[in-house]
Simulated scan of single mutants.
Amino acid sequence: MAVPVLVAPVVEKSVPVELRAIGNVQAYATVAVKAQVTGELTSVQFKEGQEVKKGDLLFTIDPRPFEAKLKQAEANLAKERAQMQNARRQAQRYGSVARKGYVSAEQYDQVAANAEALEASVRADEAAVESARLELKYCSIRSPLDGIAGAVKMDRGNIVKASDKDNVLVVINQVRPIYVCFSVPEQHLPQLKKHMATRKLEVLATIPGEEDHPSRGELSFLDNTVDMATGTIQLKATFSNADKVLWPGQFVNVLLKLTTQEGALVVPGEAIQTGQDGPYVYVVKPDLTVEYRPVVLGRSTENAVVVEKGISVGEKVVMEGQLRLAPGMQVKIVDEEAGRSEENHP
């Protein structure tokens, strides 16, 4: 009695050569915002979780002490400049009379040295004014990049200290663009280097449950060493993330496209069976008997397997009903779509 089976043809097609991994989303840049001057925090100009632009005002430190310091520095500079100008004029007068012998060289040298000292004092006061202006500018703490602001860690009214590493005001993460980091086994390293040398490699990142909406990016980094503990090498892909689908800290499924294998022989994954001697398929012959055929497998795709050796294009392989088969048995091919069957009639 013929055994009913479902079959599929062996087809020749182009198959993408891909690597799959689990990746972790990382911010393109992360900045921990700190105060650069000491003073009272007088205002917070944003909300937690808000998208901020580079240059946006985030915090304000009481500027009054720094305004007073700047005015004092400017006044000192003005006084030193006046004294310097007077010393220069005096040095010029002494120079002209010293050449005629009316004053001693020692007196002239003393006046000239005083003028040079005042010039140095003016340069120091100019630096003090610039420093005071800079400190006053630091009272307005602005975003250094486009990104998403995290939790506010210091509220209005607190005294903040300059460059206090223990008191970060807020952390900003840049999410457009954004990175996805993942690792692949080291045996793929030669292929990676070969294909990276010729073109940009496309990377797809998919959030679990959102398989129909992958994000597209490009491989941008290959680590310079293999992790000896795991035998893997780290890679990093850059995504524009214009829609902000990817978020720092997420885990995503990663698909790295290396190249395309042309003319590959492909069968459904259901057709492949595993025996004591390795993988095999049942091939349906023209007389509707089956033949046991050992095969050498290549890479797998989503719904199919590449067969490197053992079958030919156009042959039919059994993809359902193998458990009731043995070599040489008679089969009938069930057409699942139309509900028809082909039988061998003597």
Rank of each mutant, 00 (worst) to 15 (best):
D243S: 14
S312F: 01
E119K: 13
H188D: 12
L323I: 13
A27L: 00
E210L: 11
I311W: 03
C139V: 02
S240T: 11
N253A: 13
V226E: 05
A35H: 00
T230R: 04
N241A: 07
P248A: 08
S163M: 13
R99Y: 03
T232G: 03
E308N: 11
I178D: 06
L246H: 07
G147M: 02
R99M: 10
L6R: 08
L169C: 04
V180P: 04
A8Y: 06
Q273W: 01
M329Y: 10
I172P: 05
K53C: 06
L189T: 03
M1Q: 07
T301S: 13
V252D: 04
G95W: 05
R299K: 12
F221P: 01
V331E: 09
L192G: 02
T225E: 15
N241V: 05
A128Q: 09
R340S: 15
T289V: 09
M319T: 15
E302Q: 14
A124G: 09
V37Y: 00
K309V: 06
V15R: 05
T274H: 14
E210V: 03
I22K: 13
V266P: 01
S215Q: 15
A197F: 10
T198Y: 11
R99N: 12
A2V: 00
D243W: 12
L58Y: 00
S240L: 14
K257P: 04
V15S: 05
G157Q: 06
V318L: 01
G95D: 09
V245D: 10
N224M: 00
Y108W: 14
P9R: 02
L265W: 00
D62I: 07
E67H: 03
Y28K: 01
R81W: 11
K53A: 12
M196W: 09
A35F: 06
I159W: 12
